[in-house]
Simulated assay, not measured.
Amino acid sequence: MTRSIILTEAEQVLEIRAEEYGPARVSLDKIAARWSQNLGCEVTPAQVVLCMIDLKMVRLTHDVDHRDSLVDVIGYAVLMSEAQQ
């Protein structure tokens, strides 16, 4: 598996998710609002991204060859720029 194949796959996943769920920033805002309410402290969209990357990293430590988790880490990292806007 080459770098360009993994990056292309991550881009395709982001496009599919955008078609299914709408703009990533809207979802990140909604998740941040729910987590803020549940946790009783402000959670930002960027923190949501970091937490989702952490989740995927934990899954990778369980199975380092789990391709979907690797692709998701890359996808969430790409979304950080949108989360910070």
Score class of each variant (00 low, 15 high):
T61H: 08
R17M: 12
R25E: 07
M57Q: 09
T8K: 12
I53K: 01
D54Y: 06
D65L: 11
V64Y: 13
G75R: 14
G40I: 01
E15P: 00
D63T: 05
M52Y: 15
Y76W: 09
T44D: 04
E15I: 07
S27K: 15
V26L: 11
T8D: 06
L14I: 01
L60R: 14
T61R: 07
R25K: 14
D68N: 13
I74E: 03
V58N: 08
Q12L: 03
R17G: 00
M57V: 12
E20S: 12
M52I: 10
E19H: 12
Q12G: 06
A24G: 09
G22M: 14
R67T: 00
I74S: 05
Q47R: 15
I31T: 12
R67Q: 10
M52G: 02
A24P: 08
C51L: 12
L79C: 01
Q12R: 14
L28Y: 13
D65W: 14
S4E: 08
I6L: 10
A83K: 13
E82L: 05
I16C: 04
I53H: 01
E15G: 03
D63G: 03
S27D: 11
M80N: 06
Q47E: 08
L39E: 04
E11T: 01
V49R: 04
R3H: 05
L60M: 14
D72F: 09
A77H: 05
Q37W: 13
P23G: 07
A46Y: 09
P23S: 08
T8V: 00
M57N: 10
A24M: 13
S69F: 02
Q37V: 08
D68W: 13
